[in-house]
Amino acid sequence: MALLQTKPLMLPHAQERRRHQRVRVNLLGRYMLADRREYPCQVINMSPGGMALIAPVIGNIGERVIAYVDHLGRLEGTIARHLENGFAMTISATARKRDKLAAQLTWLANRSILNLPEDRRHGRFVPKIVGARLVLPNGTSVGVRIIDISLSGAGIATEFRPEIGSHVTLGRIPGRVVRHLDEGFAIEFTRLQHPDSVEENAAAQ
């Protein structure tokens, strides 16, 4: 993934603070630093002009970041300061993009979606290809049927019932068993998937 070299359109920090109130959130995602390696993250507060992330790897002040955040999509910016367990970053965006982000944050708050269980935050759907390969905790690969799938998990139809908490892999997506169903079990993915690739990765043989 190429890093954009265009000069970001940013409001001065003080002005951004006055114009945009930060909202406490709990959104999962992933981010990429300048070395182009990706890491999982959790956004804990944000405004249309910036956000704070819990992150396993902290870059340098001023380093470019590209983040993919649940419900909000692709966001770009630079690291503004380090936090105890992550960092705060600016969000580079046009005025139109900032307005859209403000509307999305308001929608999330009004819908109380941030307080819903993980598997209800993402719309589930039946994929075009329902046949898939599942790697069980003992390393055995078996054929299964995908009942439904979302960006954060999937329902699997199979006669096998791994213990809850067991680590499995659906296609190319690692996850863990979170509950048993009448015809199989539910998986929570280790990290949030991208909407453009979740079906392809799940159905990968």
Rank of each mutant, 00 (worst) to 15 (best):
L151D: 06
Y31D: 02
L4Y: 01
L181N: 10
I54G: 04
S92G: 15
M32Y: 06
R172E: 15
A55E: 02
M10E: 15
I54L: 14
V57C: 04
T158Y: 02
M51S: 03
F160A: 09
P12S: 10
G139N: 04
L151G: 12
S150H: 09
K128Y: 09
A52N: 02
L83F: 02
I173G: 06
V135I: 12
D70W: 00
V130H: 13
A2D: 12
I149M: 12
T158E: 03
N115Y: 09
I129C: 09
S166L: 01
D119I: 00
D148V: 11
R22L: 11
H71T: 07
G131C: 04
P40D: 09
V168Q: 08
I187A: 00
P137R: 13
L33G: 05
K7L: 14
L27Q: 13
I79V: 15
T158P: 02
Y68A: 10
I173E: 05
I54Y: 07
I91M: 11
A80P: 00
Q205R: 13
R191Q: 13
V177N: 07
F125C: 03
R98I: 05
Q205A: 14
A80F: 07
C41M: 15
K7F: 11
R17T: 11
A203Y: 04
D99H: 11
G73S: 05
T78I: 05
L105M: 15
N60T: 15
N45M: 00
I79W: 06
G153K: 08
I66L: 07
R161H: 07
I149D: 08
L27P: 13
S112T: 00
P174G: 05
R191H: 09
L83T: 13
V23E: 14
P174Y: 05
I187F: 00
H13V: 15
S92V: 10
P12K: 11
V130K: 15
A67L: 04
G171E: 09
E16I: 01
